[in-house]
């Protein structure tokens, strides 16, 4: 019989206390859970739990405030960057983040996103891009790929009639108000760890008051894409990453 390793001194990984114990409502294999945990771990490791105020969006992560054990406000659809602006302006010393999906951030909230970034609000915007409206049942999103099927593009996105997918992160990086803009994923251990490093950097940069930090996480939507979680991660690598390449887009000089 092997030695029992399960004792406190051998502990190398457990759920961070910045996540609550609630069972998340996300579908099996959804990237939201891992993205939540990377952000929560970043907050935990920097000791920011007691001074962080988060803003949840409308979308699948509308209930994010049940999972992050930090003070949070639930915004109207697309308005999280404006809500976060209000919070940060009255509490400039606090750490403020928004957590938004692609429909929220890049369609209905485009104006709020761009102007918060252009003003250089000292907030962190976490942008989950899975190319689909998950919560409402898999409709076409601003980031849906050309030819990609959804319940409102059942024959595939036809860019001639439905418009083009919006690479909002590249657009955001052009704005003088942004300080750090990066695109990551959480579907492999290596990618998830890189995402956490990016989030930690972004939270540290917030203390410098140099502008908006914007972390896109390209994520899967197994239910919306109608695949198993493992298939969806493979599909994401093969289809999403060529269009939304991972890596830093704007780094501080």
């Amino acid at each position: 019989m092997a030695e029992n390793l399960i004792k406190p001194e051998n502990l190398v990984y457990e759920k961070t206390k910045v996540l609550t114990d609630r069972v998340m409502h996300y579908c099996p294999g959804c990237g939201h859970g891992t993205a939540h945990r990377m952000l929560a771990e970043a907050i935990d490791e920097l000791g920011l739990q007691g001074e962080t105020i988060g803003v949840a969006p409308v979308g699948c992560s509308v209930l994010a405030y049940y999972y992050f054990d930090v003070d949070m406000t639930e915004a109207a659809h697309g308005r999280a960057p404006a809500v976060a602006t209000g919070i940060k302006r009255v509490f400039p010393e606090k750490t403020v983040f928004t957590y938004q999906g692609d429909g929220d951030l890049a369609a209905i909230g485009t104006a709020e996103t761009i102007h918060a970034c252009n003003r250089g609000e000292n907030i962190l915007i976490v942008f989950i891009n899975n190319g689909i409206y998950g919560m409402t049942g898999g409709q076409m999103a601003p980031t849906t790929l050309p030819g990609m099927k959804s319940s409102t593009s059942p024959r595939g996105r036809d860019v001639a009639t439905m418009g083009n997918p919006l690479k909002i992160t590249e657009l955001i990086a052009q704005l003088p108000g942004t300080y750090f803009v990066t695109r990551q994923s959480v579907h492999t251990p290596g990618n998830a760890r890189k995402t956490k490093r990016a989030l930690k950097k972004a939270l540290e940069y917030q203390k410098l008051n140099k502008g908006t930090c914007f972390v896109e996480i390209v994520a899967n939507c197994p239910s919306g894409w109608k695949m198993t979680p493992v298939q969806s991660n493979k599909w994401m690598e093969e289809n999403m990453f060529p269009f939304y390449p991972l890596g830093d887009i704007k780094v501080p000089e």
Binding site: T73, R79, A82, V83, T85, G86, I87, V90, E112, H115
Partner: peptide, 26 residues
């Protein structure tokens, strides 16, 4: 007291929402 010109009325009221949630007079 801080004063900010927002990008729209929609943004302005949501900034009020954020600040009001912080217990401030917005």
């Amino acid at each position: 007291m801080i004063v900010l010109q927002a990008e729209s009325e929609v943004a302005a009221i949501n900034m009020v929402y954020g600040a009001a949630g912080c217990g401030k007079r917005a």
